[in-house]
């Protein structure tokens, strides 16, 4: 038994899964959890090895607690699901008091996803979290409506996204990841806006807006009418956008969208993602983050790849 373990250790040391995601933040492996799909970490402690994750990204935090949308909030669709959770969360204060101590006790980097309905709110959040120990980076969810601008999403206009990013940039010295919305016509322009605003990395994609109708009741299934589509159904769209974003910017790109297996993860890395986030897959397979990481390691071993870093964007050929 002992011998076998030693042998595995040795094998593991031969594969270097470390990746850089900007702002000086290096992950020991590229597998992170996507915001809103892994709770605040603790929910998964009996299923996955939290210490072994590349990073944990927690549920989006706003300045004050948000109750979220009325039910029904979710519905399954072919190979995917729609959600209209409405960004329910405990708020900054309770996050720091109740959730952060547990997360700080783990060896993996903690990335806090933040959201707001004004640039001011994002700035306050970033400044507040900047004071706290144990946080490795911030991820800005810019898919939220800007209340002051009539509800138009920050993530739908390059000018607005750049203004938001640069304001937050000034409020914190933490590495800053801007999480892009796919509900735009030119994802490259959005990625460039985040880069211009001072982001250290971009992550994409957030959910695609969709809907479902109950034909028996003849009304939308979700109380919110529309919801965000996630899961395997969105993977080809996400992969295309990651490919385009990687072409558009020099900062690292983090791939998200339908990743459920290690093969999916490899596709994103080969398309130019420096790291990946697993979302909906955590729901139907809470051990998926561990399995994906083990699969990447195996793929590297079988293909004699020493450093994962060398495979990032490899599908782009000479580029």
């Amino acid at each position: 038994m002992n011998n076998k373990n030693n042998k595995n250790d040795k094998n593991d040391r031969m594969q270097d899964l470390r990746v850089d995601i900007g702002g000086g933040l290096q992950l020991k492996n590229p597998v992170m959890t996507a915001s809103g799909t892994f709770g605040y970490g603790r929910e998964f402690e009996s299923f996955a090895d939290l210490d072994n994750l590349g990073a944990i990204v927690v549920k989006g935090i706003s300045l004050r607690p948000r109750p979220g949308n009325p039910p029904p909030r979710i519905v399954e669709t072919a190979c995917g699901m729609l959600n209209a959770i409405g960004l329910e969360n405990v708020g900054l204060e309770a996050f720091i008091k109740d959730k952060l101590p547990y997360l700080k006790g783990h060896k993996c980097p903690l990335i806090v996803n933040v959201l707001g309905d004004s640039i001011e709110e994002y700035r306050h959040l970033a400044a507040g979290l900047d004071q706290e120990e144990g946080i490795s980076a911030l991820e800005l969810n810019i898919s939220c409506p800007n209340v002051k601008k009539g509800g138009v999403a920050f993530g739908s206009q390059p000018g607005l996204a750049e203004e938001l990013t640069s304001t937050v940039r000034q409020a914190t010295s933490l590495p800053l990841i801007v999480k892009l919305s796919p509900n735009v016509s030119d994802i490259g322009a959005m990625a460039r806006a985040a880069e211009a605003g001072g982001a250290n990395a971009v992550s994409l994609i957030n959910t695609l807006i969709g809907m479902a109708i109950d034909i028996r009741l003849r009304r939308p299934v979700l109380a919110n009418i529309t919801g965000g589509l996630s899961g395997p159904a969105i993977k080809p769209v996400a992969l295309r956008m990651v490919w385009q974003a990687a072409d558009a910017v020099r900062i690292p790109v983090i791939g998200i969208g339908g990743i459920s297996t290690w093969q999916d993860a490899m596709e994103f890395i080969l398309a130019g993602a420096s790291a990946i986030q697993v979302g909906t897959a955590n729901f139907f397979n809470p051990a998926s983050v561990d399995e994906i990481q083990a699969g990447i390691r195996r793929y590297m071993r079988e293909n004699n790849i020493d450093q994962l870093q060398n495979l990032i964007g490899a599908a782009k050929g000479g580029k």
Partner: peptide, 17 residues
């Protein structure tokens, strides 16, 4: 009963008022 995505309080989808 509600629709559930995870059953382990991660998705926040299973609400009743």
């Amino acid at each position: 009963e509600t629709m559930m995505a995870c059953g382990i309080s991660a998705c926040l989808g299973c609400t009743v008022t």
